[in-house]
């Protein structure tokens, strides 16, 4: 199954929120919708969910042309729950809106509460819960009706490291069950842990859409990690390379087409000690900045 976002554009007045965005999200994979604040992630999610219409373009699903609302599971960035109502009531209400009967929803709630260690809070009012527990309730609400497409916006907000690991595990399990899983975050550092493919947005424009492996490979061909006692000046003066990051005696350098690897190694070896030279393993953050530079 495939969710295709085709040439989506959206403006609010004179402000272009999204320009010609095209990408696909595959079932069984976790797609990271990534970008800094104001990149257009939330607007794109709202369009995918059918909350707002695009100015142009469309969203299609390989199975059905227009997917139905009950096939979607969504967690917005805020804790979107009724504060003055109980955990159980909130979950049942949202599940009923997604087409489950009250009995069916009640049966499904308990195992999820147990899984996320919320059983004791079943009859607690949302306003009495901690930030992390509210987030867990929200995550459950998006999964209870067993949707085929799951979209989470900043799902780790308020979660401690243990809960975060548990949530990533759930994401993996759901993806492995053949779900289309889209996770949006502006925290690029954390996305390395769970993304199979990435969609990078910046100021409403698509920077990159590919599997994490391909994106990294493309980038890794252009990076070297060098452990040496050479001073930074050496890299500045050598043609075709640029320091990306530096750590005591190791450097990560970006290289371009004018870079002569053989000459570089020979010259470095002649003047300094080389402990290690390897092709770099890029993080999503690096991929983002590299793509931004290219664009």
């Amino acid at each position: 199954m495939l969710l295709s976002v085709n040439n989506i554009s959206k403006s609010f007045g004179s402000k272009k929120a999204l320009v010609n965005i095209t990408f696909s999200a595959l079932s069984g994979k976790i797609t990271g919708l990534l970008g800094p604040n104001g990149a257009g992630k939330t607007t794109l999610i709202r369009i995918i969910l059918g909350i707002i219409p695009p100015d142009s373009g469309n969203i299609t699903n390989s199975d059905i042309k227009t997917f139905r609302r009950y096939e979607l599971g969504y967690v917005p960035e805020e804790h979107a729950l009724y504060e003055k109502s109980k955990v159980f009531d909130n979950l049942i209400y949202f599940a009923e809106l997604k087409g489950l009967s009250k009995q069916e929803a009640s049966l499904r709630v308990l195992p999820w509460l147990e899984k996320l260690e919320l059983t004791e809070y079943k009859n607690s009012y949302i306003e009495t819960l901690s930030k992390g527990n509210r987030q867990k309730v929200q995550l459950i609400a998006s999964l209870l009706h067993d949707p085929r497409i799951i979209i989470w916006d900043e799902p780790f907000s308020g979660l401690d490291p243990l809960a975060r690991e548990k949530v990533i595990k759930i994401m993996r399990e759901e993806a492995e069950r053949g779900k289309i899983f889209i996770v949006s975050t502006h925290q690029l550092d954390s996305a390395d842990n769970f993304c199979d493919s990435i969609v990078l947005l910046h100021k409403g424009k698509l920077l990159l859409s590919d599997s994490l492996e391909n994106a990294g490979k493309m980038l890794n061909d252009n990076y070297l990690e060098v452990s040496t006692d050479a001073p930074p000046q050496f890299f500045v003066e050598f043609s075709g390379c640029k320091i990306i990051s530096q750590n005591v005696d190791s450097y990560k350098i970006a290289i371009d087409s004018t870079f002569d690897k053989k000459k570089f190694i020979a010259e470095l070896n002649r003047n300094y000690d080389i402990k290690n030279i390897a092709t770099g393993k890029s993080t999503i953050k690096e991929i983002f900045f590299h793509s931004l530079e290219l664009s």
Partner: peptide, 13 residues
């Protein structure tokens, strides 16, 4: 403000 409306709109017209 709490964006519950988005959950509602992703569930009904």
């Amino acid at each position: 403000q709490g964006r519950i409306i988005e959950i509602l709109l992703s569930s009904c017209s």
